[in-house]
Amino acid sequence: MFRYIVRRLLQMILTFFGATFVVFALMFANQDDPIQALAGEKPVSDNVRAVLTERYHLDESFPVQYWYYMKGLLTGDLGRSMAGRDIGEMLSGAWPVTLKLSALAIVVAALIAITAGVWSAIRRGGFFDNSTLLMTLLLLAVPIVVLAPVAQLVFAMELRWFPATTTARAGLYDLLLPAVVLACSVMATQLRVTRTSVVENLRADYVRTARAKGLTPRRVTWVHVLRNSLIPVITLIGVDLGMLMSGAIIVEEVFNIPGVGFNLARGIRAEDGPLVVGFVSVLVVVFLVVNLVVDLLYAALDPRIRYE
């Protein structure tokens, strides 16, 4: 177990440097004139230009700029956005509502995906199975960029079941519609993996043993089969988080939820390079850490890995 953790930790550190390097290199690669981009069509005075160049180290070489970037990232100093706001502060103000939104989305997605996945595995080929299959196909096909505005139009504006927009202090109910939309982006894959995994496990020898022990079918499925089947589903959570982060940009933008995604979307629109790179870098770090946690969780669920 200890060796497993150490190995994963070392891998993560490597991936951290690699991934942040990719982000930085991407930004550097398409940097033509960020100052002009900020100002738009208006001319920029030499004075302002000099200040901005100094602040963002724009006249330095690639390695030097990368050094400043990594230093900022590791010390938690993300610098200032083009509009002059402290990026770290923006982030700390934005994350609570995003966390609430994504937690809700994960719960919604997992509840529906696991229950429906197990059900359709037990009754595979039946009506329920076939309709879930169709539903997952539709969910996979409708991108969030379609789902979010349409859901807002139908359920919030026309039917008025949910509020169309929220604030930073949004309650759970206010966040429910956006969370469901967000959940849709990961639900289909989770459901399909659960189903396949349960189908495979139902054929396993240990299921026969469990039945020979005189256990009820319910106990066999929900205690013996489910725990085994969840192992591949757990590994999905890591990948799903990436989907959720991407989805949150759209969902928060559409529903006006002042979270991380909302700020990021604004930064993209305003072509605010430092803000976008700062936010993305932090999200990448979060993504990596969560993936590490998922791997450890995986080990907790599967004793065969734990004692490797």
Binding site: D205, T209, A212, G214, N228, D302
Partner: peptide
């Protein structure tokens, strides 16, 4: 029938590794 299993008639299988559930002690 379920109460007969394990209580009155029990069974052991060929391959104990696959016949035991890998994720429970």
């Amino acid at each position: 029938r379920r109460k007969v299993r394990a209580n009155r008639i029990a069974m052991i299988f060929q391959d104990a590794l696959s016949a035991l559930n890998p994720v429970y002690s």
